[in-house]
Structure formats: C-alpha cells, structure tokens
C-alpha cells in the first residue's frame, strides 16, 4: 500500500520545526510501524536527505524507547501496543498519517521525533526505590507477600517508562508514570517503611519537572502500552494526602538519608 506521511522535522532543541510530507510507497502490511520508517529513511538517505530521527531499541514493546504520536494518538490506534509493535495492517492504502514527537514542556524535542525524557529518571531518583544496599537482604522467604498483592504490584510495575501517558494527557501530566511506581512499591511489604517519603518525594519532583496536573481525563491509561490503571493514580493521591498529614518534622538527631 501507499501512504502519505506528515512527519515533524526539527534539527535540534533550539531550532523551529515543521511537518514535512513524505510518500511511503509499497508498504507491506506485515511491517511494523518503525520498519515502515526504516524503509522511508533508506529512501531519504539514498536521495541525500537526512533520515528521520526516532528513538527505538528493543522493538518488542518492553524497553520503552520508542513512541510517537500517530494521527493524534500516542503509540497509534491499537490499544495496549507500543509503536514498535504496531503493524501497518492497522492502516489502509492511501491513508494520511501525521507523526509527531511527544509534546510536553518537560520533554523538549532533541531532534525530529526524539525527546528528552530524563525528568522521568529524576522522578524515580526522588523515591522510586527501596533503600536497601547490596548484601543487606534477609532470605527471600522471610518476606511473605499475598499473591493478590504481588499481582497488583506487578500490574503497576509493568510500566515501561515510555512517556505515552504524558504525551496523551491534555495537561502533559506525568501522574500515571509516577503513580505506577508509587503503587508498585506501596503495595508490597518491602515498600512500606518508605511509603510516605516516596509519595511526597516523587510527587514533589514530578511537579518540579514542569508537568501539568491531573484532571482525571483518563487519556493516559488508554494510551498506556501496558494499560496501567487509573487506580494507581488514586492510590498515589491517597498516599500523598495521608503522608502529608502524618509527616512529622525530622528530629534534629536523625541523620541524613
């Protein structure tokens, strides 16, 4: 099939960008979306034009590197599917496809479809962990975790950190990303000692990074390739509220972390 692409081209973070039209010819329905871009790029290089830059790595939907807005929806039309796992059979001959980078103040465009998602790492740094040094752990069986809790934690822990939630949210909010980690650890016994600190720290960092707020639209969960539930956001809201009211000033004698 033949397609018309309108792709966002931008040389670097400082330069203005624009949508440029390309024709994708003889696209096979068995190609993945990224393979279609590969073929377009091969053609561009042969013509002496700069290929379209896009992030990608594992191409099996787990590393979270890839992700673009495809016709106005994050990762394209297929539910629970990252861009690399979207196949061209989801499109039909003659389709016009608009391809844009994730857009958010916190995610500046680095080039074409590549954005800087380092704010997500900094949110994790603000508390998305259990403070345990290597070798400190007790035997694994001393910590019992009810199966249901382990499953719910896993539901949240599946987040691949792609940023589609931010991209899809009309407010460019990172609530679903942050909440997934707060939920994952908050549901497990290992996460309890730092539960309050984690919620406070991660939400504060999320705000500092310049993401928008949550207005409970639900766009994030629909765009999420792992279909992380809105329940995680509710859980984070609760943890944050409870933590605020439970927190005591750190006593003078307490050491730093």
């Amino acid at each position: 099939m033949n397609l018309t692409l309108h792709v966002w081209r931008q040389v670097d973070a400082g330069a203005p960008g624009r949508l440029v039209r390309y024709e994708a010819r003889d696209v096979s329905p068995d190609m993945s979306f990224l393979e279609m871009l590969d073929v377009v790029n091969e053609g561009l290089i042969e013509k002496g034009e700069d290929p379209i830059a896009f992030d990608h790595d594992c191409r099996e939907g787990i590393c979270g590197s890839c992700g673009v807005m495809i016709n106005g929806s994050a990762h394209g039309p297929m539910a629970g599917t990252a861009t690399c796992q979207l196949h061209m059979r989801s499109f039909k001959d003659g389709d016009k496809i608009v391809i844009e980078p994730w857009r958010a103040r916190a995610f500046p465009v680095l080039r074409d479809l590549i954005v800087d998602r380092s704010p997500l790492d900094r949110i994790i740094q603000a508390g998305g962990f259990v403070s345990i040094a290597t070798g400190n752990a007790p035997d694994a069986h001393t910590i019992l975790v009810p199966k249901q809790d382990a499953e719910s934690a896993m539901d949240a822990a599946q987040c691949i950190g792609c940023g589609a939630c931010v991209a899809a949210c009309p407010n460019a909010s990172a609530m679903l990303f942050t909440a997934a980690k707060v939920s994952h650890l908050g549901l497990l016994p290992q996460g309890q000692p730092e539960r309050d600190r984690r919620a406070l720290g991660m939400v504060t960092q999320m705000d500092l990074e310049g993401f928008g707020g949550c207005t409970n639209y639900g766009e994030c969960t629909t765009a999420c390739p792992k279909e992380i539930s809105l329940e995680t956001i509710a859980r984070m809201n609760r943890d944050f509220r409870v933590a605020t009211f439970r927190a005591r000033p750190e006593s003078a004698g307490a050491g730093s972390s």
Binding site: M69, S73, G218
Partner: peptide, 29 residues
C-alpha cells in the same frame, strides 16, 4: 492555578490530537 499550569505544560500544541478516552463532561470542566 492548575489550568494555568496545564496550559503552559504543553507549549507546542499537537498538529493533530484526538482524545481517546476523556468524556465530554471532563473536557467541559
């Protein structure tokens, strides 16, 4: 204040953005 924040959180708008999930009521808040 939240509306203001949400407006500046995406300084460059999408050329095409199709809501997938939000209700009309939510968008009319």
């Amino acid at each position: 204040t939240l509306i203001r924040l949400n407006q500046v959180s995406r300084p460059v708008a999408y050329a095409k953005h199709v809501p997938q999930a939000s209700t009309l009521a939510a968008r009319l808040m």
